[in-house]
Design a protein around this nucleic acid. Structure first.
Lengths: 156, 156
DNA sequence: TCTGTATCTGACGTTAACGTCAGATTCGGG
DNA sequence: CCCGAATCTGACGTTAACGTCAGATACAGA
């Protein structure tokens, strides 16, 4: 057995808790070895799997979504069919990732625009009717820059 | 009152539920007008605010984080100081967005790499000791391509 | 073998973001 | 003024991803 680790060591090594690892097992994501007495042991393979799970979870994937990726090969008759199912699943994940990245990039540009308006009109506290800024540009652009609706001062 | 809407109309218009809008109010994100009887009414300003909230929430921001953005101006003595606090907060958000985008882009490249290995070695069902693929390259690259630890067939 | 520490298995608690349901009240068209 | 539809206020239910605690076992070093 080349380097097997108990659950506490694994948790320390990966910076997570013992409970988290057990929970991933409950969720059907991990099946460690067991001693006669029931103590869990994790091989390097198990830890590689755990790192992959954590990487996905850290990026907002639910454990169920991760399980679907891990189980993509299930039910296939040949290794060939299995691999094809896996790549199909990965393509779906790539598609979703692309969409999320695009959405975040758009939101980022939105915020950059909002920030520039806040600076441009800082004297009036971004209230459209403030005395210091009678022709407040925020009013004209609040429709274009959605986020201004949140930053904009509450009272008219 | 230029175009005020009841909660049901707002929900329909934005494709959300009445409960969600009320919940955002509980969370301190929205303070609609009220009639004598207590019925809520939403102006265009309120709806602009709601759209901004939804945009952020859709992109993974917690309601508490959104509340912090909306309340960034609180406690400032001058409009100038308030605007400066808002831009500071927005800069923090931009920083976080940049990090999340980078992380997602890295993960995407990871998955692209994993996908190419799965295709390259599809005959052996990505088991390193499979007969159809005695010198399975997955074994040599599982350390480099973290995600292979998840795709890789469970049993040795 | 003894013992202190780690692990085990339930099982219940927690938080965020709503869903759902009941009973009372309000609104708005006829 | 009437009445059906919408809204109101609690209040309890739900899901995911763990936290926490108790009591029993297992493991490893002296």
């Amino acid at each position: 057995m080349p380097s097997e680790h108990k659950i506490g060591e694994v948790a320390d090594a990966l910076g997570i808790t013992v409970r988290t690892i057990r929970y991933y097992e409950e969720a059907g994501l991990l099946e460690p070895l067991r001693t006669e007495g029931g103590t869990r042991y994790y091989t390097e393979r198990h830890m590689a799997r755990l790192r992959a799970i954590l990487h996905l979870a850290d990026n907002g994937f639910s454990l169920e979504a991760i399980r679907l990726i891990a189980a993509a090969r299930e039910g296939s008759r040949s290794g060939d069919e299995g691999s094809s199912r896996v790549t199909t699943r990965l393509d779906e994940v790539l598609e979703e990732l692309a969409m999320r990245i695009d959405a975040l990039a758009l939101l980022k540009e939105e915020i950059v625009r909002a920030r520039s308006w806040v600076r441009k009109c800082r004297g009036c506290a971004n209230r459209p009717t403030s005395k210091g800024c009678p022709e407040c540009p925020v009013r004209k652009h609040v429709a274009d820059v959605e986020l201004l609706g949140l930053i904009w001062d509450q009272h008219d």
